[in-house]
Deep mutational scan, measured.
Amino acid sequence: TEEFVRLWREAVRHNQTLHWNGTDFIPGDEWAEEFARREEEKL
């Protein structure tokens, strides 16, 4: 979602874990980066 992408970019900028829907998205984590890339492509 647009909100997820916005929060993810913020988390990456501050190198912080994003807690989203009970899942931890960690900047630099391969799975999280791939998920975020797919979400961005949907926008």
Rank of each mutant, 00 (worst) to 15 (best):
T1Y: 11
T1E: 08
T1V: 13
T1S: 14
T1C: 15
T1F: 10
T1D: 11
T1Q: 09
T1A: 14
T1K: 07
E2P: 10
E2G: 10
E2L: 14
E2H: 13
E2M: 14
E2R: 14
E2K: 11
E3R: 07
E3I: 10
E3A: 10
E3F: 06
E3S: 08
E3K: 05
E3Y: 07
E3C: 09
E3D: 13
E3M: 10
F4V: 00
F4L: 01
F4R: 00
F4W: 08
F4H: 00
F4A: 01
V5D: 05
V5W: 07
V5Q: 04
V5H: 04
V5K: 02
V5S: 04
V5M: 12
V5G: 03
V5Y: 06
R6Y: 10
R6N: 09
R6S: 08
R6P: 04
R6C: 15
R6Q: 09
R6T: 08
R6F: 11
R6L: 11
R6I: 08
L7I: 04
L7F: 05
L7G: 04
L7P: 02
L7D: 05
L7H: 07
L7N: 05
L7M: 09
L7V: 04
W8I: 00
W8L: 01
W8N: 00
W8E: 02
W8R: 00
W8P: 01
W8M: 00
W8H: 01
W8K: 00
W8S: 00
R9P: 03
R9N: 13
R9Y: 14
R9Q: 14
R9I: 12
R9V: 11
R9L: 14
R9S: 09
R9M: 12
E10H: 10
E10L: 08
E10Y: 08
E10G: 01
E10N: 07
E10F: 07
E10T: 03
E10A: 05
E10P: 00
E10V: 04
E10I: 08
E10S: 03
E10Q: 08
A11R: 00
A11L: 02
A11D: 00
A11P: 01
A11M: 02
A11S: 07
A11V: 02
A11E: 02
A11W: 05
V12C: 05
V12Y: 04
V12I: 11
V12H: 06
V12S: 07
V12T: 08
V12Q: 11
V12F: 04
R13C: 14
R13Q: 14
R13A: 15
R13D: 08
H14G: 10
H14L: 15
H14R: 14
H14E: 11
H14S: 13
H14A: 14
H14N: 15
H14Y: 13
H14W: 12
H14Q: 15
H14K: 15
H14T: 15
H14I: 12
H14D: 11
N15Y: 05
N15I: 03
N15S: 09
N15C: 09
N15Q: 12
N15R: 08
N15M: 08
N15H: 09
N15E: 06
N15T: 04
Q16P: 01
Q16R: 14
Q16F: 12
Q16H: 13
Q16A: 12
Q16V: 14
Q16K: 15
Q16W: 12
Q16C: 15
Q16Y: 13
Q16E: 11
Q16M: 14
T17M: 10
T17D: 02
T17G: 05
T17W: 08
T17N: 05
T17I: 15
T17Y: 05
T17C: 05
T17E: 04
T17L: 11
T17Q: 05
T17R: 06
L18E: 00
L18D: 01
L18A: 03
L18G: 00
L18S: 00
L18N: 01
H19Q: 09
H19C: 14
H19N: 11
H19F: 08
H19A: 05
H19D: 03
H19P: 02
W20A: 02
W20I: 06
W20L: 05
W20M: 03
W20S: 01
W20T: 01
W20K: 00
W20H: 04
W20N: 00
N21P: 01
N21R: 14
N21W: 11
N21D: 10
N21Y: 13
N21F: 14
N21Q: 15
N21A: 13
G22N: 11
G22P: 00
G22F: 05
G22C: 04
G22E: 06
G22I: 04
G22W: 04
G22Y: 05
G22K: 05
G22D: 08
T23G: 07
T23H: 15
T23M: 15
T23I: 15
T23Y: 15
T23R: 15
T23W: 15
T23L: 15
T23K: 15
T23A: 12
T23Q: 15
D24N: 11
D24I: 14
D24T: 12
D24W: 13
D24V: 13
D24Y: 12
D24G: 03
D24Q: 11
F25T: 01
F25E: 00
F25G: 01
F25S: 01
F25W: 04
F25Q: 00
F25R: 00
F25A: 01
F25P: 01
F25L: 10
F25N: 01
F25K: 01
F25I: 02
I26G: 03
I26Y: 09
I26P: 05
I26K: 14
I26R: 14
I26M: 12
I26E: 09
I26A: 13
I26H: 13
I26C: 10
I26Q: 12
P27F: 02
P27M: 02
P27G: 02
P27E: 02
P27V: 04
P27Y: 03
P27K: 02
P27T: 02
G28Q: 03
G28E: 02
G28W: 03
G28C: 12
G28A: 03
G28H: 03
G28T: 04
G28N: 04
G28D: 02
G28R: 02
G28M: 02
D29L: 05
D29E: 12
D29I: 07
D29S: 10
D29C: 12
D29M: 08
D29G: 03
D29A: 07
D29Q: 09
D29V: 10
E30G: 11
E30M: 12
E30H: 13
E30T: 14
E30N: 10
E30Q: 13
E30D: 13
E30K: 14
E30R: 13
W31Q: 08
W31Y: 08
W31H: 07
W31M: 09
W31G: 05
W31S: 06
W31T: 07
A32E: 01
A32D: 02
A32K: 01
A32F: 02
A32G: 04
A32I: 04
A32T: 03
A32P: 02
E33W: 04
E33M: 09
E33A: 06
E33P: 01
E33D: 07
E33Q: 10
E33C: 09
E33G: 03
E33S: 04
E33V: 07
E33N: 06
E33K: 06
E34M: 09
E34G: 08
E34W: 10
E34V: 06
E34P: 00
E34Y: 06
E34Q: 12
E34T: 10
E34L: 09
F35K: 03
F35Y: 15
F35M: 08
F35Q: 05
F35V: 08
F35H: 09
F35P: 00
A36T: 03
A36M: 08
A36V: 11
A36P: 01
A36F: 12
A36S: 04
A36Q: 01
A36I: 06
A36G: 06
A36C: 08
A36N: 02
R37V: 05
R37S: 07
R37D: 04
R37L: 09
R37Y: 06
R37A: 11
R37P: 01
R37W: 05
R37M: 09
R37E: 05
R37T: 06
R38L: 11
R38A: 12
R38T: 10
R38K: 13
R38W: 06
R38N: 10
R38H: 12
R38Q: 13
E39W: 13
E39S: 12
E39F: 13
E39G: 04
E39A: 15
E39N: 06
E39T: 15
E39V: 14
E39P: 03
E40N: 07
E40P: 04
E40D: 05
E40C: 07
E40Y: 12
E40L: 14
E40W: 13
E40K: 07
E40R: 06
E41A: 14
E41I: 11
E41R: 12
E41M: 14
E41Q: 13
E41N: 11
E41Y: 10
E41T: 11
E41V: 11
E41K: 12
E41S: 13
K42H: 06
K42G: 06
K42T: 06
K42A: 10
K42Q: 07
K42W: 09
K42Y: 07
K42F: 08
K42L: 09
L43V: 08
L43E: 05
L43T: 06
L43H: 05
L43P: 03
L43A: 07
L43Q: 06
L43G: 04
